Amino acid sequence: MEIRRKASIGRPRGFDADQALERAMRVFWGQGYEGASLTDLTSAMGINRTSMYAAFGNKEELFRKALERYTEGPASYAASALREPTARQVAAAFLHGSVWATTRPGCPAGCLGVQGALAAGDPGRKARDTLAAWRNEFTSLLRDRLERAVEEGDLPPGTDPGVLARYLMTVSNGIAVQAAGGATDDDLRQVADMALRCWPPATDPNQPTG
């Protein structure tokens, strides 16, 4: 009995967990947390509820794992943008990345991090709070990067990095909402470019303008 039990524990799940999580992410992305039923999720993942619970936990835990996958995949442009050499290039990479991620062919329109649980009721409250924290975390990272830009003379000394970071997030979130409503890639690139025309100029003449 001991040997048979150990063999059972080591038995493979019989499905590709990575592929199943990718499919769950797309369901949440397209339908939101509350709109995605367990039937929708398990059907897309190609598994039953027992297997889903065993591999990923409950729906809320699955959602968090899907959001992590989204952050490392479709939304990875955000972290990449922070590594750009100038503040304006950070802003350009972030806003253009937002357009690309929310309008890319073959994927749901909009942003999982924005529309995933905006209007959630009590059952989706934790998912809504998770997404709010997700957005706030990146706003803080943007603010930190823009504070450095002020210190380096890449932004005028009177610039408020917190307000500027919030401005970028507001434009990005608006891009996501417009994309979900059917706005095209070309339409939203024009919006991003208009926002960038308002960008504060660098004060250090040695800084590239990007």
Results as ranks from 00 to 15, higher is better:
Leu141Met: 02
Glu152Thr: 12
Gly113Ile: 03
Gln115Thr: 07
Ser98Ile: 03
Leu95Thr: 07
Ala75Ser: 11
Ser140Pro: 00
Arg88Thr: 04
Asp160His: 14
Val177Arg: 09
Lys65Cys: 05
Tyr70Met: 04
Arg104Lys: 12
Cys111Ala: 15
Thr102Ala: 13
Ala120Val: 04
Arg145Lys: 12
Arg49Ser: 12
Glu84Cys: 09
Gly121Met: 05
Met45Trp: 01
Pro74Ile: 07
Leu95Arg: 02
Phe63Gly: 03
Met45Arg: 02
Arg49Trp: 06
Ala176Glu: 06
Ala54Asp: 13
Glu61Lys: 11
Gly73Thr: 09
Leu146Trp: 06
Glu147Tyr: 04
Leu67Ser: 03
Pro85Phe: 14
Leu118Met: 13
Arg128Lys: 15
Ala109Cys: 10
Ala179Cys: 13
Arg64Gly: 15
Ala132Trp: 07
Asn173Tyr: 12
Arg135Asp: 01
Ala75Phe: 03
Val163Ile: 15
Glu61Asp: 14
Val177Met: 14
Thr86Cys: 12
Ala87Arg: 00
Ala117Asp: 03
Ser76Cys: 09
Lys65Tyr: 04
Thr86Gly: 11
Trp100Cys: 02
Leu141Gly: 01
Ile47Ala: 04
Glu61Tyr: 06
Thr159Leu: 10
Ser140Met: 07
Arg69Tyr: 10
Gly116Val: 01
Pro85Gly: 11
Gly106Tyr: 10
Glu147Trp: 04
Asp160Ala: 12
Gly174Tyr: 10
Leu67Arg: 08
Ala179Ser: 14
Arg166Trp: 12
Asn136Met: 10
Glu147Asp: 11
Ala133Pro: 08
Asn58Thr: 11
Gly162His: 04
Tyr70Glu: 11
Leu142Gln: 00
Ala109Thr: 14
Gln115Arg: 06
Ile47Tyr: 02
Leu82Glu: 01
Gly73Ala: 08
